[in-house]
Amino acid sequence: MRVGVVTFPGSLDDADARRAVRLAGAEPVALWHADADLHGVDAVVLPGGFSYGDYLRCGAIARFAPVMEPLVEAAHGGLPVLGICNGFQVLCESHLLPGALIRNDHRKFNCVDQALVVESTATVWTSGYATGQRIVVPLKNGEGGYVADEKTLDGLEAEGRVVVRYAGGNPNGSYRDIAGISNERGNVVGLMPHPEHAVEDLTGPSTDGLTFFTSALKAVVGV
């Protein structure tokens, strides 16, 4: 299985995302923002960072990068896409996921090992977890407050599309403690915390994040 990881100008966590893909047993493929081609990959990760310096709004300019055109089309067709942190912001700006991310309510940059509860295992990226499983992965952002109107939030809850929720206190003012959501089909998932930083004991607070990547591998290859 080949998993593309897009590098935008200002992406930071693309190398870690490729490493997580490799540790999960898949082949990472570096994709370039200015290349309007997905090079036949089986899934795509939009990594964390500060694409285009977070100018205008986080993810607002990356959304119009050439690579996003085939990506949005493929995502509508069922291609597994995972957006982490800035990648989540790009997915919201692209309208592949509803809502938006705004500045943390306490106005400080957050960098913590964050407890989460996996609420939906019906997505390509979380099928390997148990429903209700508590995991710990790093969270690091300044604009991680998830917002949407009440109707959208009610819809997400009713359809089981809240994928991960913050546990042990809300770190950034996200409405209803939402840390990550999916599209209706469950192939597109976005979250603010960083599973790709929790894939090895040496470098992460846990290896809880690896299951995001092995779940996708299993969904695509069936192993």
Partner: peptide, 13 residues
């Protein structure tokens, strides 16, 4: 402008 129902941490500061 942010919609009225959206929290504005910068304005608050």
């Amino acid at each position: 402008m942010l919609k009225p129902e959206i929290l504005d941490p910068q304005g608050k500061a």
